[in-house]
Nucleic acid binder design. Structure first.
Lengths: 229, 229
DNA sequence: TCCTTGATATGGTCTGACCATACTGTGGTC
DNA sequence: GACCACAGTATGGTCAGACCATATCAAGGA
């Protein structure tokens, strides 16, 4: 038994303290993307820790898509706050797919879920579809499966963007990133992409007309065409 | 102009090299959750880098929910591969909400999307609902809003689990984590939780009977009851 | 006015040391 | 033989200090 005696046991690692302090500062000072954090050496001195601990905290923040570090001197140098959740999600998916703690099937299904939801929502809010139109043009001009997939990805991510939900759009982008190779193989297997192009037009028109149910149906059937299995 | 001359410019940081090497090793050796990585000092020597760089790489992997480091000696010590995408997603959401690069509205909507999809899927596959039943019992016994939300979260996460998609289940858990305070306030504002309880039973029964559409409807109406706005 | 050049602040990396922790093995004790 | 105390050791966690590469800035000269 401790008998009530208490001594200050260190339970959190130093870099976790640094993380908490930075997070607190972000909340209290209302920092947002574009603002700068103090330099590593300065932060270390302020918090009374070594620069190594500060650096480990910075790696965490960088991994989560919250800061970006630039070397050199000047207004753009140092640690700047950013808002790139995609990068973290992409790394997350890639590593967990590699670890076999996720299967491509699950990624595909999640993508299906998001896309149907986003198309419904985009149609409901009569979203601007100019980004979808230019992605369509890109696909028409594509000369290889890789190029086609590139613009196809842009088209489908534009649907997610059009939903107006940045979180879901970020997840969508990461999912597509993880599926990249898979998508290219699917297109190569398919050979003729005219069916996919027709699907895209149908989706686009449904969103333009604000027909939410038709948009969802069109997306669902399109994905069935693209990844029939 | 470079005139075609080429000199070996260092474009990636050392810890990124380490990350790539570890990722490669995971892929080539087919490592999965539970396997151990070499010790930091050993890894540093193998890769010809300093221990600091190895440590920064470990922080990244830890942030992404891929490794867990234990001090001491023995079979459980060192860096062990794990599969906890939730922790990364939870940190991601918390920080981006703090940075105002995400709004609670977007989190709520994402949660709505997932839950409807998961309920549909759970009903379609006639998933086991025993976890839902025990969460229901927990809610009946709850004495405070916090306690109620705790078991409510368990109930809704169990639906996501029942969908059979680990990625979507992990996202669901992180979303609920981020919404925790918000959910407690919603329940306190509501006062009487009998409507929510009835909704839960309706959802449970729909899933049990395999009625996918009814399950989705029940979830949708339940969320409207819980977060009417 | 423009360019050169040195000063400087920044992140990136390395070395080497020390600490706290937790297992491992050894040896003594009953 | 069974048990326990204790030294040994491998692990991550932290620190201090140094050096490098890079990018800007400021001073000075052409």
């Amino acid at each position: 038994m401790d008998g009530g005696g208490w001594r200050p046991v260190k339970r959190t690692r130093t870099f976790e303290d640094v993380l908490a302090q930075i997070e607190r500062r972000i909340a209290e000072d209302g920092l947002t993307a574009g603002d700068r954090l103090p330099a590593e050496r300065q932060l270390a001195e302020q918090l009374g820790v070594s620069r190594s601990s500060v650096r480990e905290a910075m790696r965490v923040l960088e991994t989560l898509g919250v800061v970006s570090s630039q070397v050199g001197r000047g207004p753009d140098a140092g640690a700047v706050l950013i808002a790139r959740p995609e990068s973290a999600l992409t790394d997350l998916l890639r590593l967990h797919l590699g670890l076999a703690s996720l299967e491509m099937r699950e990624v595909i299904d999640a993508r299906h879920m998001i896309e149907e939801w986003a198309a419904t929502r985009a149609a409901a809010v009569r979203a601007d579809t100019s980004a979808l139109v230019s992605a369509l043009a890109g696909m028409d001009a594509a000369g290889s499966a890789e190029e086609f997939v590139e613009h196809d990805t842009a088209f489908h991510c534009a649907i997610a963007d059009a939903s107006g939900n940045r979180l879901i759009a970020a997840i969508m982008r990461s999912l597509r990133d993880s599926m990249r190779r898979y998508a290219v193989e699917a297109v190569e297997r398919l050979g003729d992409t005219s069916v996919l192009r027709a699907d895209h037009v149908r989706i686009l028109e449904a969103i333009d007309r604000g027909e939410a149910d038709e948009a969802a149906r069109a997306v669902s059937e399109h994905l069935a065409h693209a990844y029939r299995s």
